[in-house]
Amino acid sequence: IIFSPFWVSFPEFIRLADGEPIVIPTFADKNFTPDFEQLEKQLNPRIKLMIINSPSNPTGAVWDNETIRRLLSYAAKYNWVVISDECYEQLVYDSEFQSIETLNDAGANVITIQSLSKTYAMTGWRIGYAAGDSTIIKAMSKIQGQATSCANSIGQIAAVEALTGDQSAVKVMKKAFLKRRNKMIDRINKTAGISCQTPGGAFYTFPDITHYLGMRIEGKKIDTSFDLSDYILDTARTTTVAGAGFGCEGHIRLSYATDEETFLEGLDRIKQSLMKLKETS
């Protein structure tokens, strides 16, 4: 089970393990929380695993504790393994982050996945770690041993320093991201035809752009978020990511993991391009 919007690799992870993803929709106007009615309809004895990603990529949404506990109760009841992708655990702005395992009163089998890529800006080092049931972790180690031998040794040493060393840089980065988030949300919601809830974590926004779907410019119709992202790239020279790629049409993903001047200019360019669509609709 995965929840849309989902990180683009999640369905392929499942297929590589000879599984088939069951996609459960979420409510965009309710912090992208799961549609539990749809989850109930999809229940079947073949389900083995559920992936939870909070804070989320692409939405930045942070699910509340009640939602997490409710999902864990399903997992415990039906004997599902839960993979908790917590790569953005330190980048939570409006509340204190709680690892899912700390909310696991139901006793579900949780595998927690952590990464050095986001909190410590170590994307190129390709280093992270997992915690969970020892049988599963040992099996994961066997697969990794045959696939890549091990995480690179330099990355391991750097990861230890990142995790055990001075954390002041993380606090500085988090403060900067919070400021950027607020700036980006303010600018997005002042753009006609676009709306976006304030994400609680990560460094993405996932605005609703359905207003512009179906419009035309120079004889070309913008049918999908892929069409809109291509149009923005061509006319505004600004990169966005189509929501359809994350299993959620009608949105685009924006990132504020760059300096404020750059992304504000990008948003201004996007606005100018969208206004041309509006004028020719």
Rank of each mutant, 00 (worst) to 15 (best):
M215C: 10
F27H: 14
E96V: 06
R15M: 14
V8Q: 15
L116C: 11
I100F: 04
F226A: 12
I83A: 12
V172L: 02
E265T: 15
G214Y: 09
S4R: 08
S281W: 11
T119E: 05
N44F: 10
Y88M: 15
T262W: 04
W125G: 05
D227A: 09
Q42H: 15
G250P: 00
T205D: 08
I194L: 13
K48W: 02
E265Y: 14
S73T: 00
D18I: 00
C196P: 04
A242C: 03
S149Y: 12
C87D: 08
R216A: 06
Q98M: 11
S195A: 00
A75K: 07
A176Q: 12
I24S: 07
T198D: 06
K77Y: 00
Y120V: 03
I252E: 13
E249C: 04
Y212M: 01
N31H: 13
E265C: 06
G247L: 07
D230Q: 14
F6I: 02
A28C: 08
S9K: 10
Q146V: 02
Y256A: 14
K175H: 05
T123H: 08
Y231Q: 07
D234T: 08
L178N: 14
N152F: 04
L274H: 13
F32W: 15
E161A: 13
S73F: 01
T33L: 06
T135Q: 04
R253Y: 05
Y212C: 01
L213F: 02
M275W: 07
R269V: 02
V92T: 12
F10I: 06
R15L: 10
T198I: 03
T102F: 02
E260F: 05
I111K: 04
M275H: 14
S229V: 03
S4M: 01
G250E: 11
I52R: 14
T235P: 05
E260W: 06
G250A: 07
G107S: 05
R269Y: 11
K77C: 00
T67D: 12
N53T: 12
Y129P: 04
E265V: 04
Y256V: 09
D208S: 10
T258G: 09
S141N: 09
Q272A: 08
R181C: 01
G200S: 07
F3S: 06
D223G: 03
D35H: 06
L277W: 15
R70P: 00
K190G: 14
I157S: 14
R46C: 02
